[in-house]
Design a protein around this nucleic acid. Structure first.
Length: 368
DNA sequence: ATTTAATCCATTACCACATCAATGC
DNA sequence: CCGCATTGATGTGGTAATGGATTAA
């Protein structure tokens, strides 16, 4: 699983699309996800270089490898203690149809991906490539690797959003903000993204503050009121709507097949791929989401970032609220309940009127 | 350490029929 | 548009059956 592209079956798979549950090479990724606006929304991430089966969560600079949570743990915390000092960078997912150059700008660390990019078959790439390469040359290497946040790029007839953060795990620059030596706006001024317009109203990190009313670079704001629930749009599960029509919040939370709030957010082009408050699989199940990145810390909460206490508080609040949720059966039609409460039964089953019964709810007596 | 049996626990099906909701006239 | 009749679908609770997980031998 995951060695060869699920689409062409020839090239080595490099990205994983959760929506399609498919491992794709870069060329097929671009082809498949440029088909329609919906497919463009699919969130993809790199595939773990070690196991080739799980979405990569971090990039080990020293090993030059993208690793999933498990392989990262095994490689850096398990038997190989000496590798624990390796410098790692967190990886997030992206959507849309980024060109080879744009992928290169965010995956500058990946030499291997350039090979895949070479085979990208979209014709427009060649032109776009030549144009952007000259622009890209103006960007110092340090800015490539330090660039953070997202790009909402609208180019000609296509647009795509890259959800990507590359930041040193052991650095103080752990906030999800632009922390490179150049301000992103300055990059635009430099002509790097001259062809890109930023007027599309997608939910990206730029307008995150506008939508949520708080800065995106401070995890405290994310969990200030309702913890994880606030992110999922679950304001108060105890005040449920009259359950006549729509599914209740509880059912939404517990149902594993229904669309879930987490995913809805993704449809808003906001990546919540690793925003869960708990890294256990059970929590993910409860949330109803099988995240693109199934395990791991939120991007802003990296080891040594000093925000673990904030996260633990948020997780605590989330669990407390989870305990408060009610799962008791609720009666939608009192009249039917009243009727059922007086009906006679045989071994718990309703019987026709007049037939012998072994249980009468009214008298709690048995006829035989 | 492994296998098998026993136990526990949660989930689901079943039943009749009043009621709901949709449809047609 | 409103009211009525018809029809199919739904939901209600206690018990047994079922199956997975856990424990003991």
């Amino acid at each position: 699983m995951g060695y060869n592209c699920d689409y062409c079956g020839e090239a080595r798979s490099m990205v994983y699309c959760r929506s399609d549950a498919a491992y794709l090479c870069l060329s097929c990724d671009r082809n498949v996800h440029s088909a329609n606006p919906l497919s463009k929304r699919h969130m993809r991430t790199l595939v773990c270089d070690t196991c080739n089966s799980q979405p990569a969560l971090v990039r080990c600079v020293d090993e030059k490898a993208s690793l999933c949570q498990n392989c990262d743990w095994v490689g850096h915390n398990g038997a190989n203690i000496g590798a624990s000092t390796h410098s790692r960078q967190t990886l997030n997912c992206y959507s849309g149809c980024p060109s080879a150059v744009e992928l290169s700008s965010i995956w500058s660390f990946m030499e291997s991906c350039e090979q895949g990019m070479d085979s990208m078959s979209i014709a427009e790439n060649s032109q776009e490539n030549s144009e952007s390469k000259t622009q890209d040359s103006s960007l110092p290497d340090e800015n490539k690797s330090d660039w953070m946040g997202s790009l909402n790029i609208q180019n000609a007839n296509k647009s795509h959003t890259i959800y990507h953060e590359v930041k040193p795990l052991n650095s103080s620059q752990s906030k999800a903000s632009y922390s490179g030596t150049k301000d992103p706006e300055q990059l635009v001024d430099d002509g790097l993204y001259d062809d890109f317009t930023m007027d599309e109203v997608d939910m990206n990190i730029e307008n995150y503050e506008e939508l949520f009313g708080v800065g995106h670079n401070d995890p405290k704001h994310l969990f200030a009121k309702d913890g994880i629930d606030s992110l999922f749009g679950m304001k108060d599960t105890t005040k449920e709507p009259e359950c006549s029509n729509a599914a209740s919040v509880d059912s939404l939370m517990s149902c594993k097949t229904e669309p879930n709030p987490c995913y809805t957010k993704q449809h808003s082009n906001l990546s919540f791929s690793s925003l869960t408050g708990d890294s256990s699989g059970g929590e993910y199940q409860d949330c109803g989401a099988s995240s693109v990145v199934p395990m791991g810390e939120p991007p802003w909460c990296t080891p040594g970032s000093g925000s673990t206490s904030v996260r633990s508080d948020a997780v605590l609040r989330y669990k407390e609220k989870k305990k408060m949720r009610k799962f008791e059966k609720r009666v939608r039609y009192a009249t039917r309940k009243a009727r059922a409460d007086v009906r006679k039964r045989v071994k718990g089953r309703f019987i026709k009127a007049g037939e012998a019964y072994d249980y009468d709810p009214m008298t709690e007596t048995r006829s035989f």
